[in-house]
Amino acid sequence: DHWEIRVGDITIHLKDVDEEIIRWVEEALRNGDDLEEIKRWVEEVLR
């Protein structure tokens, strides 16, 4: 699977990601969370 999350001008590409993570990231972006923080979290989860 390949996911693209778009929020404003930001697009995040994710592969082999659980839908729950996608929802979490979308929510975090909508809440204005720091992008670097989100990326770190996702990388942590995917490890």
Rank of each mutant, 00 (worst) to 15 (best):
D1V: 12
E26I: 14
E20F: 09
E26G: 06
H13I: 14
I21K: 02
R40T: 05
I22D: 01
E44C: 07
I5K: 01
G32I: 11
I21C: 02
D9Q: 09
D9K: 05
V42W: 04
I12Y: 15
R6T: 14
E36H: 05
D9Y: 06
E27H: 12
W3Y: 12
E19L: 12
R23P: 00
D34I: 15
H2M: 13
E43S: 04
V17D: 02
D1K: 11
L35K: 04
W41R: 10
K15P: 03
I12P: 01
L35Y: 09
I22M: 09
E19H: 14
G8N: 08
V25K: 00
W41A: 05
T11V: 07
D34N: 14
T11E: 08
D34T: 15
I21P: 00
D33P: 11
E44D: 10
R47V: 15
V45P: 00
R30E: 08
G8M: 06
K39I: 14
I38N: 00
E43D: 11
G8V: 05
R40Y: 03
D1T: 14
V17S: 05
E37C: 07
V25P: 00
G32V: 09
R30P: 01
V7N: 05
E26S: 12
D9P: 06
R40G: 03
R40P: 00
D34A: 11
D34W: 15
E27C: 02
E36I: 06
I38G: 00
G32K: 04
R47G: 15
V7L: 13
H13R: 10
G8S: 06
V42G: 00
D18L: 14
I5P: 00
V42L: 15
R6A: 04
H13S: 10
D16N: 12
V17R: 06
D18S: 13
W3R: 04
D1A: 12
I21V: 10
I10E: 05
L29P: 00
L35D: 04
V42E: 00
H13W: 12
E20R: 11
I21R: 02
T11Y: 12
T11A: 11
E37N: 10
D1M: 13
L35C: 00
D33K: 14
W24N: 04
G32W: 11
L14W: 14
R6H: 13
H13C: 07
T11M: 10
R30N: 07
L46S: 01
G8F: 06
K39E: 06
D33F: 10
V25M: 04
I5W: 08
R6I: 14
L46I: 12
R30G: 05
E36N: 08
I5H: 03
I38M: 03
T11C: 01
H13A: 09
L14Q: 02
R40A: 12
L29D: 00
V17K: 06
E44A: 06
E44K: 03
L46A: 02
L46G: 01
E4S: 03
R47H: 15
E26R: 13
I12V: 12
E36R: 06
V7E: 08
D9C: 00
A28C: 01
T11P: 02
A28S: 07
H13M: 13
V45A: 15
E19D: 13
E26V: 15
E27M: 11
E26N: 12
I22L: 13
E19G: 07
I21H: 03
R40F: 03
W3D: 03
A28G: 06
E27I: 11
W41C: 15
G32L: 08
E44S: 03
V25S: 00
R47K: 15
W41M: 10
V25N: 00
R6C: 03
I10A: 06
R30H: 11
A28H: 10
I21L: 08
W24V: 08
L46F: 07
E19S: 14
D16H: 10
E36V: 04
I38D: 00
E4V: 12
N31H: 07
E36P: 01
V42S: 00
I12L: 09
V17N: 03
V7G: 04
G32Q: 07
L46M: 07
R6Q: 10
E19Q: 10
D34R: 06
D9I: 13
L14Y: 07
I10T: 07
D18H: 06
E43M: 09
E43I: 10
E43A: 07
V42T: 01
D34K: 08
W41L: 09
V45Y: 15
D1P: 13
L14I: 08
I12E: 02
T11L: 12
I5R: 00
V7S: 02
N31W: 04
W3A: 03
G32H: 10
V7M: 05
V25Q: 00
H2I: 14
H2R: 11
E20A: 10
I5M: 05
I5V: 08
D9T: 04
R23Q: 09
R23V: 04
R6F: 07
E19Y: 12
E27L: 12
V45R: 03
E37T: 10
E19N: 13
V42A: 02
I5E: 01
E43L: 10
N31T: 07
K15I: 12
E26F: 12
D16K: 05
D18I: 13
H2S: 12
K15L: 04
E19V: 10
E19R: 11
E27G: 07
L29E: 01
V25H: 00
R6E: 09
K39Y: 14
L46W: 03
W24G: 05
W3S: 04
R30Q: 07
K15T: 12
I12A: 01
I22H: 05
V45M: 15
D18A: 14
L46H: 01
D9G: 06
R6D: 08
L35E: 08
K15A: 10
V7W: 12
K39L: 15
W41V: 14
L29G: 01
R23D: 02
D18P: 14
D16G: 14
N31F: 07
I22A: 08
R30K: 11
R30D: 05
R30Y: 06
V45G: 03
E26W: 15
E19P: 14
E27A: 14
H13F: 12
R23S: 06
K39A: 07
R23Y: 03
N31A: 11
V45Q: 15
R6P: 03
D33H: 10
I22Q: 10
K15R: 12
V7K: 05
E4R: 01
H2W: 15
D34V: 15
L14H: 02
W24P: 00
D18Y: 14
D34S: 13
W3G: 05
I10Y: 13
R30V: 09
V45K: 04
V42D: 00
R47A: 15
D1I: 13
E27P: 00
D33M: 15
H2N: 12
W41K: 08
K15C: 08
